[in-house]
């Protein structure tokens, strides 16, 4: 009985995960009449600036997330056990507000007639253009995905044996050195999974760029969306772009995994 228990699930995943990916590949390498072509892949080169922008924004957002999430996770992991779970709850709570609305809220905060500019005009400062800039898109990415960085970092750090830190202190490390030589190497699995969990959604988003970036900050996600549901219907080109996006992500992940040597099954759970 046990042998066949997974069969319905395997069938399901074959039909709704594997087959659709093959369909994407099929569309990516055919014309709309079904003939083989490489045109869809070659055409993505026309969008090289958009690809470069997506990769750059996503990489920058990931780095910023890591830099500001690391101290936070460290502070929380060193609090008393009861406070830790409360703090993590508080950090994750914003995720329960619909993320489209959270992003929209930033629009009203940083808009030209938004809250920040209203406050600035009260003290007599000229309004600053923040909305519809590349900075706004990166802000949106950092804000929306930072919980995905904090959580794995905290999970790994909470498991680090405190006596190792004490040992480092006894052996003459100052606080900064022991973080550099003990905490960071031991929290590597958390860093790696945090990086992937922020980078992948950031590079493929189309909502954040649409809501905060105006028309001059198109990302790969916007390109794909336009080919399927937007103004320029062309599923073959859309599949081609999706295909290239998947390849980019696979390359990035393979590169990241080179650094990481922890057990595969464990890693996903983090």
């Amino acid at each position: 009985m046990k042998k066949i228990a997974a069969a319905p699930y395997q069938l399901w995943m074959a039909i709704f995960v594997i087959v659709p990916l093959f369909i994407v590949a099929y569309f990516a390498f055919t014309t709309d009449s079904g003939a083989f072509t490489l045109e869809n892949i070659i055409k993505t080169a026309d969008y090289a600036p958009i690809f470069a922008r997506s990769i750059g924004f996503a990489a920058l957002a990931t780095v910023i997330c890591l830099i500001i999430a690391y101290p936070l996770a460290y502070i929380i992991a060193n609090m008393s056990k009861n406070v830790q779970s409360t703090m993590i709850m508080i950090v994750m709570l914003p995720m329960w507000m619909n993320f489209l609305l959270r992003t929209y809220a930033w629009q009203t905060i940083i808009g030209n007639n938004g809250i920040i500019n209203n406050l600035l005009s009260m003290v007599g400062i000229e309004p600053i253009k923040m909305l519809n800039t590349s900075g706004a898109v990166i802000l949106g990415m950092v804000y929306d995905y930072i919980p995905f960085m904090i959580l794995p970092l905290y999970t790994v750090m909470a498991k680090i044996d405190k006596s190792i830190m004490e040992a480092a202190g006894d052996l003459g490390c100052n606080g900064f050195q022991s973080i550099l030589k003990v905490t960071i190497p031991l929290s590597m699995p958390g860093i790696i999974s945090g990086i992937t969990m922020v980078f992948v959604p950031a590079i493929s988003t189309f909502i954040i760029s649409k809501m905060l970036g105006g028309s001059s900050n198109l990302l790969i996600g916007d390109l794909i969306e336009m080919q399927f549901l937007g103004t320029s219907y062309n599923p073959n080109l859309g599949a081609g772009i999706s295909f290239v996006l998947m390849v980019i992500i696979l390359i990035v992940m393979a590169f990241i995994n080179l650094i990481d040597k922890s057990d595969q099954e464990e890693k996903v759970i983090i």
Binding site: Q10, M13, A14, F16, V17, I18, P20, L21, I23, V24, F27, T196, V200, P201, I203, S204, T205, F206, G221, I224, E225, F228, P235, G238, A239, S242, L245, M246, I249, M253, V268
Partner: peptide, 19 residues
């Protein structure tokens, strides 16, 4: 295979199912 929907960007999952 179980990891694919979790690792793949959501937009690719959406587009592939749509196709």
């Amino acid at each position: 295979v179980n990891n694919i929907p979790m690792i793949n960007p959501e937009i690719v999952t959406g587009v592939s199912l749509m196709l």
